[in-house]
């Protein structure tokens, strides 16, 4: 459904992403891993429209979307979460998500309908959906869930989940991983999942892509990645 070809991003003299190509198939969960500074988040920002590619193409169901603004990418059915949650503190929890439901598709739904969808999304991730809950005082796990609920409320076909589990404890991590897995099975959402923590990710994803210094060094099954010499070298250092 998403085809990335020769994608590059240069910041001044620094090549953050270097001619990456990969494909995301309908209904799969693709893991995108790599050490810090390997270009994972930059790749995400390029797909989500937060950055313009220096070169290369990004096609969604055959249509070029590279370089479109972020809101237009969202309207085409790609939603993202941010590595560090970015809630709107001036709005209530429900308003945060209802806003996403209202603007996410640009189909002119009513406010009541937007709130209904927002409640659904909040229920799905396990957050309270009463109108009085504020974002202030929510813990790290709840804020991650809010990011996810807000992305889901835009009714995406493809979800870009950016390091969804950083800052959570082991139990919360397992729970969140299961949630991502259930999104695919229950709602048919295709997912690209960027993650530092390889353990949980390996259990859920169908395939992984490993980046290092902006280049793709591995693509394949999670089990193979764990034994691939280049991946091991990048993660554990030369032996």
């Amino acid at each position: 459904m998403l085809v990335v070809e020769g994608l590059s991003k240069r910041f001044g003299g620094f090549l953050a992403v270097d001619r990456i190509s990969f494909e995301v198939r309908q209904g799969e969960i693709l893991g995108l891993i790599g050490p810090n500074g390997s270009g994972k988040t930059t790749t995400f920002n390029l797909i989500a429209g937060n950055l313009r590619p220096t070169a290369g193409s990004i096609r969604l169901d055959g249509a070029e979307i590279g370089g479109l603004p972020a809101y237009a990418i969202c309207h085409r059915g790609i939603a993202r979460t941010f590595q560090i949650p970015r809630p709107f503190h001036k709005l209530s929890l429900l308003e945060n998500v209802a806003l996403a439901a209202f603007y996410g598709e640009m189909k002119g739904i009513s406010r009541a309908e937007a709130e209904r969808r927002a409640r659904q999304a909040l229920d799905l991730v396990g957050l309270p959906s009463d109108p009085s809950t504020r974002t202030a005082g929510l813990g790290a796990a709840a804020l991650k869930k809010l990011e996810l609920a807000r992305a889901l409320a835009t009714r995406p076909r493809l979800l870009l989940a950016d390091e969804s589990l950083g800052g959570l404890d082991a139990a919360e991590m397992e729970q969140a991983a299961d949630l991502l897995g259930s999104l695919r099975s229950r709602m048919g959402i295709t997912i690209i999942w960027v993650e530092h923590i390889m353990g949980v990710l390996m259990r859920i994803v169908d395939r992984v892509i490993v980046l290092d210094h902006g280049e793709k060094i591995f693509e394949g099954a999670p089990a193979q990645a764990a034994v691939d010499p280049r991946v091991v070298e990048v993660y554990l250092g030369k032996t």
Binding site: H75, F82, F88, L91, E95, A98, L99, Y103
Partner: peptide
């Protein structure tokens, strides 16, 4: 609802754009 969208924009333009505003 424009008011809420504008509040969102005033807090974080990237996050607002990410939900389709």
């Amino acid at each position: 609802i424009n008011r809420e969208a504008l509040e969102a924009i005033s807090e974080d333009e990237d996050a607002a754009a990410a939900i389709g505003i």
